[in-house]
Write a protein that binds this DNA or RNA. Sequence first.
DNA 1: ATAGTAATAGTAATCATTACTATTAAGGAT
DNA 2: ATCCTTAATAGTAATGATTACTATTACTAT
Lengths: 143, 143
Amino acid sequence: MSTNNDELITAFKAKGYRITKQRLIILNALRNTATHPTAEEIYNMVKPQIPNISLGTVYRTLGALEELGLLQKLVYGGSFSRYDGNVNAHYHAVCLDCGKVLDVDEPVLSNLEERFSSETGFTIVGHKLEFHGYCKDCCKRKN
Amino acid sequence: MSTNNDELITAFKAKGYRITKQRLIILNALRNTATHPTAEEIYNMVKPQIPNISLGTVYRTLGALEELGLLQKLVYGGSFSRYDGNVNAHYHAVCLDCGKVLDVDEPVLSNLEERFSSETGFTIVGHKLEFHGYCKDCCKRKN
DNA sequence: ATAGTAATAGTAATCATTACTATTAAGGAT
DNA sequence: ATCCTTAATAGTAATGATTACTATTACTAT
């Protein structure tokens, strides 16, 4: 519902990229889900609205959105990536059993980066923190 | 040279796994490098000692070593994984330009996990922290 | 409305990783 | 030390997520 496409339109125009139905729908689909869907899941989410969309278009669009900072690509142990429409700094918890990715409601550690940056000559632009464990559902299933 | 294969031998025997030349050499190669090599890099590292080793054996061995907690698999944005023979808890810094992975000499945040665990029902077994940025070499090259 | 060209749909190619299979070699029993 | 069982290996084929290719479509500046 709160689909401020203005942000997307501004970012795309600044790069000379065109605004297409596919791009708008993919970004909004991503923003309206609490899950962290894979490319294929997004493909299936938008198919009702764009029946003949191609999986390649989904990948290309996700790449463009990532480049523009409109989404976060999540790469964990599995064989595929997940995508997060929430670009505010936050952490994730990955279930080692079912692969589910949850948002972590913890304050972001802002002071970490400077500490390491100076002595190593490594210029830090950000950090990623992920918790590994077992989600409530998977814990229950085991008992 | 400080190759305490005892650890590997004990861990493998406990699982009924056999001790092979390939497994010993792969683990020692991994422990004697400060880099975080890919499977193919490890394959090339051990080839002088085992000329007809198969890449499949490298993958299978790395999988077994990971299962036994004798190495850490590093999965970042790239299309391939890296392997770290140092299983002591520590963090990494990934160069966004060249893909190099460096060890971070910072104390591990031990208090993080309990904070999140209780209210979510998520049972945490560990966490991973990675810094993103540009390494010294890549910063230099740009100026 | 038109022209120029980026983006798309459909499909083929890529490439890291995994699976398969005949052969080899650990390692326990004799 | 030799034999036997079977796990592990080498070599190769298959898998599957992602990327590349190409003719066609549809944005957007004029």
